[in-house]
Design a protein around this nucleic acid. Sequence first.
DNA 1: GCTTGAAGCTCCAGTGACTGCAGGTTTTAA
DNA 2: TTAAAACCTGCAGTCACTGGAGCTTCAAGC
Lengths: 148, 148
Amino acid sequence: MSEPSLPIGALARSVGCNVQTIRYYEQVGLLPPATRTAGAQRRYAQVHRQKLSFIRHARELGFSLPAIRELLALAEHSDSVCSRADSIARHQLEAVRRRIALLESRRAELERMLEHRHGRRVRDCRVIATLADHGLCAEERHETDARR
Amino acid sequence: MSEPSLPIGALARSVGCNVQTIRYYEQVGLLPPATRTAGAQRRYAQVHRQKLSFIRHARELGFSLPAIRELLALAEHSDSVCSRADSIARHQLEAVRRRIALLESRRAELERMLEHRHGRRVRDCRVIATLADHGLCAEERHETDARR
DNA sequence: GCTTGAAGCTCCAGTGACTGCAGGTTTTAA
DNA sequence: TTAAAACCTGCAGTCACTGGAGCTTCAAGC
């Protein structure tokens, strides 16, 4: 009958997010509304904690809120078809892989910009020169390769 | 006297960004205001094209607009000290590396979630189960290792 | 029962770097 | 001259929160 009921701050601490985030999830309909005290303060049950924990875990993996909404709905019905959840996760994995590839190429160019010896003044600065002339970042490779 | 002057659309095509972006850069003071025709349309000179190209290149590398603002200011003065530009770039490189590390761990967990055989229904779904129980994503490794 | 300070409440604005739209004006080529 | 393409300003929307102002409620100690 009397399920342990957490105020919002305790819930926030227990899942490691902050209070505003929880209110925001309620506002956008991701988390069901809490019960309220006579003075209109929110009190949460275990089911809320589980859902919130699910949401936070999914967010850490980079799922969007719409994707999480759908995953939560799937989780509600234990006989719904699993392939949809898989497809959402595969989609996210692909997005993460594309993002990594983009960042790897950024990293490579930044490293190339930085690894050269250069003058103390901006007129000889690799960083500025590379940004100013897009050609440099492609040609740089050839020059470097040729020199070795 | 009569420098070739591009309308905004032509400039946008020539650097591969869109028209609103150019107006936005002017609005936030990243790009100096264009000269205007009698009918108040913008006309751009080569110096604008160079700056815009610099900005876009820096954006592709993930520099923030405040960082780019500073890099542009450094580029203006060819006798300013290069180490500041280097420091901005190194900072960005570190940010990119941290981001890659985060995404790699996401990728690993998503791959672990997806690589298991599982039932057709959500009650046996790895994806949902892993999200629901944060413990699974760490423990999974041990179980898997132990079983082999 | 009273006080007090922590924690809660709502509502609203701001973040970054754009993007899109509405409704109007200018330019340019035929 | 006309018609279409391109341009203009101003503002709202994106995503997932985060922060603040100004007020109310709760819980613990006395």
